[in-house]
Design a protein around this nucleic acid. Structure first.
Lengths: 273, 273
DNA sequence: CTTTTTTTATTGTCTGACTAATGCCCGCGC
DNA sequence: GCGCGGGCATTAGTCAGACAATAAAAAAAG
C-alpha cells in the first residue's frame, strides 16, 4: 500500500543530484483518485504548498476530514504525499489562516469546528464550489446576497460617479454581445458587478460582495458547461443599470433583488434539477 | 485571550535594504530576552510565524508597507529579523492567504492592492483595530453591520429555537450583572450575539457577523479602558431580545438597527471625541 | 528594431537536525 | 483510594544550508 508503482523498494536511492521533480512528474501522491483531482482538474498554482492547501481545503469542506479529526503528523503526511515537510507546513499555515485547522505541539493538527471556518474567504468559497455544495449552503449564500446586494445597489445609485456608470455600461455592452457562455462574457459580468460595488464607496461591503460574486460566478461557468438553459441575464442587469444611472435608489434595490432571486432559481435548477 | 492593545512600538522592519540594529535587541525570538519585543507587546501567539504575520499585517494595514511595494527578499528579511527563512516564509504564506501579499520568483513578494485584501477576515479585522482605524473604514463597517444585522435579527426572530432564546437570556443576565467594563461582561455580550447569529440558521451570515462582531468588540474594550462614558447597552439588547422572544420580526429588525446606530455613535465618540 | 538566448535575482523545494511545548503516565505523598 | 507533581514521549516549531524552478531583465542574434 505504500506506493502503487514503486521503482525502488527502499524509500530512495537516488543516483546523483538529479532528483525526481514534482511538477513535471508525479505530484502529490496519495491514493490515485485525489491525485488526479489536483493536477488534472484544478491545476491550481505552480506552487506546491498552494496546490496542497487547495486539496486539503477541498477535502475538509467535502467532509473527507471531519471537524475535530486530527491529521496524521507532519512527517508521516509529508512523506506519504512525497513532498517535503516545509511545503506541507506552508500548506497547513494557509489552511490555518483560513480558520480551518489548528496546530499545537503534541496534539497535532486538528480540523476546527465548521463554525470557525472563514466561509466567505474567496479561496474557501472557490474550494466550496469545486464540488457541488450542499443545498443548504447555497441557500445561505443567496440569502446573504439578498440581504447585502440590494442594499449595495441602493448605495451605488446614490453615490455612483459618472465614470462608474460608464464602466458598467461598457461591461453590459460586452455581456450583450458575447453571452455568459463565453469567458469574456463572464468576465464582463464580473466587471459589471465590480463597478457597481466600487460605486457603493464601502470597502467592507466591497470585500464581501467581491468574494461572493467571484464564487457564484463559478456556478455560472458550471451552468454554461452543462448547457443548462438559463434565462438571459442581460435584461435584469440592464434594469439595475438603468436605475443606478438615473440615481433611483429604490428602483435599484428592487431590480437587484429580483436579479438575485432569478440567479438563485437558476442555480438551484442547475444543481438539483 | 488577547490582551488589551498596548500601543505597540512595532520594531520596524525596513523595506529599503538598510542595515539597522533593532532597538533593544532582536525583535522576534522565542528564547528569553529576544522575544520580549513581540511576545511582550503583541503577545500574539507562541508561534514565531504567527507573531511575524501579525506584525507585518499590522504594518501593511497601517501603511508602513504600501500597496505595490516589494518587501526585501526572504534571506535579507529573515536574517535582519534574526529568524529562519522557513519561519519567515510561513508568515508570508499567512499574509498571502489573506490576500495581502503575493509572491513570485524573481519579482519578490509585493503588497497587493487594498482592494484584494480580505478585510473581513477575523484576524485582519483584529489587526485593523490594533491601531486606530480610519474614520472611513469604521463608517464602512458600521454601514455593513447596519445592512446585515437587522436582517439577521429578523431571521432570528422567525427561526429561533427555544433553546437559543434561553442562551440569549442567560447572556443578557450576565451582561446586566457585570457590565461591559468587565471581561466576563464583554464575553456575555459576544455570547448574546453568537446565540442570535446561530438562530438565523444561516451559515454564511454567521461567518460574516461573527468576524465583524469580534472585531467591533475590540472597540468596546478600548472604550472600557479609556472609560469613555458610554450609554448603557443593556436596554438596547433587552429590546432586541424581547422582540426575538415574541417572534416579532419587524420589531427585532428595528431594535437591532437602533442598537447598531447607538454603538456606532459611541465608537465614533471614542475615537474622535 | 525585433526576436531569441543568456544571465541573474528571487522564490520554491528539499533535507535533516535540533528546540520547545504539552499531554500523559507514573509514582509519591496525603 | 485520591489528588498532585515531575519526568517522558510525542508533536509541532525552528533552524541551517543546499539546490531547483521561474520569470524578469539584459545581452546577443537576426
Amino acid at each position: 500500500m505504500r506506493k502503487p508503482v514503486a521503482p525502488p523498494p527502499t524509500t530512495e536511492l537516488r543516483p546523483t543530484g538529479n532528483r525526481l521533480k514534482m511538477s513535471g512528474g508525479r505530484p502529490l501522491r496519495t491514493d490515485g483518485q485525489h491525485n488526479a483531482a489536483i493536477h488534472g482538474h484544478s491545476m491550481y498554482q505552480g506552487r506546491l504548498h498552494g496546490a496542497l492547501a487547495h486539496r486539503l481545503g477541498v477535502d475538509i469542506l467535502k467532509g473527507t476530514f471531519k471537524s475535530g479529526e486530527i491529521l496524521p503528523n507532519e512527517i508521516e503526511s509529508s512523506s506519504k504525499l512525497d513532498i517535503s515537510r516545509s511545503a506541507y507546513r506552508e500548506a497547513i499555515r494557509i489552511l490555518a489562516a483560513k480558520g480551518m485547522v489548528e496546530s499545537r505541539p503534541k496534539t497535532g493538527t486538528r480540523v476546527t469546528e465548521r463554525e470557525r471556518w472563514n466561509l466567505l474567504d474567496p479561496e474557501v468559497l472557490g474550494w466550496m464550489f469545486e464540488t457541488e455544495p450542499s443545498q443548504d449552503f447555497i441557500k445561505s449564500l443567496f440569502e446573504l446576497r439578498l440581504i447585502t446586494e440590494p442594499a449595495a445597489a441602493e448605495l451605488a445609485a446614490v453615490r455612483r460617479s459618472d465614470d462608474q456608470v460608464e464602466q458598467m455600461r461598457t461591461a453590459l455592452d460586452i455581456m450583450k454581445r458575447d453571452t455568459l457562455q463565453t469567458e469574456t462574457g463572464r468576465r464582463a459580468d464580473l466587471d459589471f458587478h465590480h463597478a457597481l460595488i466600487q460605486a457603493t464607496g464601502n470597502e467592507a461591503l466591497a470585500s464581501l460582495s467581491s468574494s461572493i460574486e467571484a464564487a457564484v460566478s463559478w456556478t455560472t461557468r458550471y451552468k454554461a458547461r452543462h448547457n443548462a438553459l438559463t434565462r438571459d441575464p442581460v435584461p435584469d442587469h440592464e434594469r439595475v443599470f438603468e436605475a443606478i444611472e438615473r440615481r433611483d435608489a429604490g428602483g435599484a434595490r428592487w431590480c437587484m433583488e429580483s436579479l438575485i432571486r432569478m440567479a438563485h432559481e437558476d442555480t438551484q435548477k442547475t444543481f438539483h434539477p
